[in-house]
């Protein structure tokens, strides 16, 4: 009995130490998860801000699922029988740059920017019934490097910060009647900040509903 006690004492001691170690480690792991979750939550919240811009008319009118661009805040079909063409730049004799110059033409109400063109169909952000795709679907599309011209998170951030046609959305010029076109719902700086938060969180996408 005494011998057994002598044997069990170190064993209990060892079990106690192991148990405490596990407790400490599990507490640490828990705190790590707690710190990761807010980052994920922040990333997802930031994505929703990014999404609100992407599906605004200034962006989605050229990210169509159709054979033609759209125009206006009501996103109606582009007038003058303009069509997408093989490379999203219209067709000979009816190309995008045949009207859209390198900058906005304020006196004639024609928007412009460098190499005016449609986004490829792989980057369509609406369905064929003209409804914006869900936040989850757009996120999956934007983060799919097979569809997005092989852009990783850092490249997506740069795209949102610097791409000329992205920047145009915040300088969309005047309509023919002289009124200003509606910009996206966030300021460009806010859009970039939201994109950065989303990228730093690992470009998380919401779950499809």
């Amino acid at each position: 009995m005494l011998a057994n006690r002598r044997l069990l004492s170190p064993l209990f001691g060892l079990m106690f130490i192991v148990g405490m170690a596990c407790l400490v480690l599990s507490t640490r792991a828990g705190s790590k998860r707690d710190s990761a979750n807010p980052k994920l939550a922040d990333g997802l919240a930031a994505w929703e801000q990014v999404y609100s811009v992407l599906v605004s008319p200034r962006c989605i009118n050229c990210h169509t699922a159709t054979n033609y661009p759209q125009q206006g805040d009501d996103r109606h079909r582009h007038f003058a029988n303009v069509i997408r063409g093989r490379e999203g730049r219209g067709v000979p004799a009816l190309s995008c740059i045949g009207c859209h110059q390198e900058v906005n033409a304020e006196s004639t109400g024609v928007p412009g920017g460098p190499d005016w063109h449609l986004a490829p169909l792989s980057m369509r952000w609406q369905d064929t019934n003209n409804r914006p795709l869900s936040s989850a679907a757009v996120c999956r599309s934007v983060t799919d490097r097979a569809k997005n011209e092989n852009m990783d998170g850092r490249a997506l951030l740069t795209h949102h910060q610097e791409a000329a046609l992205v920047l145009w959305a915040w300088n969309p010029g005047r309509r023919l009647d002289g009124s200003m076109r509606t910009p996206p719902p966030l300021a460009h700086e806010q859009f970039v900040t939201a994109t950065r938060t989303w990228v730093e969180a690992g470009t998380p996408c919401p779950r499809a509903k």
């Binding site: 003058a80 033409a105 109400g109 024609v110």
Partner: peptide, 26 residues
């Protein structure tokens, strides 16, 4: 006068362009 009909088409560097909506400054 709004690039809808094509009657004003000219070429700018070979690109068919609607001259009614391109300001001379551009």
């Amino acid at each position: 006068g709004i690039s809808a009909c094509g009657a004003c088409t000219v070429h700018l560097n070979g690109v068919a362009t609607r001259s009614c909506i391109v300001p001379v400054s551009l």
